[in-house]
Amino acid sequence: MTKREIIVLTDVSLITCVVQRGLADKIIQAARAAGSQGATVNFAKGMGIRERLGILGVAVDVEKEVIHVVVSTEQQERVFEQMYLAGELDTPGMGIMYLTPLEKAATYVPEEVLQKLAIKADKGVNNTAKID
């Protein structure tokens, strides 16, 4: 019987960002440049400030893209800030973004990364949660 093990990552957070359709790619590019590893996008419909803008509301798309990015807590501030700036979320109607702490995450971790972490752990550096 083969041994199966699970590498659990802790100290990770989920950044969720809701923006108008078509803007996700630019924001994900910024997130990756800031150090995040991957992203997932799904479509949605939303309402918010659009309904309060009256005739000007036509400038805000009803169709949204919801971006999910898992990051280590070490990186979360930097990635969050870069995504915020890329999405121009300081402009009304552009979208909303929030950070959720995660208890744990799991994915395939390549052998060379595990070896690197093991070396750091031997040196007394706690890096079990690093996913970069």
Binding site: I6, T100, E103, K104, A106, T107
Partner: peptide, 22 residues
């Protein structure tokens, strides 16, 4: 969590990612 990890094939390259929150 373990069941999904193994049955869903997340232990393989390009298998995806999973996470848990309260």
């Amino acid at each position: 969590f373990d069941f999904i990890f193994h049955v869903g094939g997340l232990d393989r390259p390009r298998g995806g990612i999973m996470f848990q929150q309260a």
